[in-house]
Amino acid sequence: MLVVENTPQVHNLVVCTLCSCYPWPVLGLPPVWYKSAPYRSRAVIDPRGVLREFGLELPQETEVRVWDSTAELRYLVLPERPAGTEHLNEEQLAALVTRDAMVGVARVSPSQKDASA
């Protein structure tokens, strides 16, 4: 398993265009949308459009790296630490991390865990 880190300059997004490879041991079974034709077809050609659909608008200056899981390596995104969380400990930070953030279709919000993940 490879962990790719999001930074203020770089945003990572994971997909499997050929089937539905996903980091099962860590994230469990993938959601239906991850295995669906709309996500698999567009994540590589229009990652910014895909992210917009998930409610994440990236600035033009951010570099987007898409990881197409074509072999037996599995990818996990290390989300960027949100601003205003300097006082939180590891456990509190972990509680903010969502599945979607580890696939790369969302950012970690400094307040509450997203109900969808």
């Binding site: 265009t17 050929l18 239906v32 949308w33 669906s36 034709a37 077809s41 567009r42 895909v50 197409d68």
Partner: peptide, 19 residues
């Protein structure tokens, strides 16, 4: 058709809440 990277027309991504 499984090799769908770059294809158009597959529709919107439907993410289900609390799937």
């Amino acid at each position: 058709v499984h090799d769908m990277g770059g294809m158009h027309g597959m529709g919107p991504i439907l993410a289900e809440k609390n799937e």
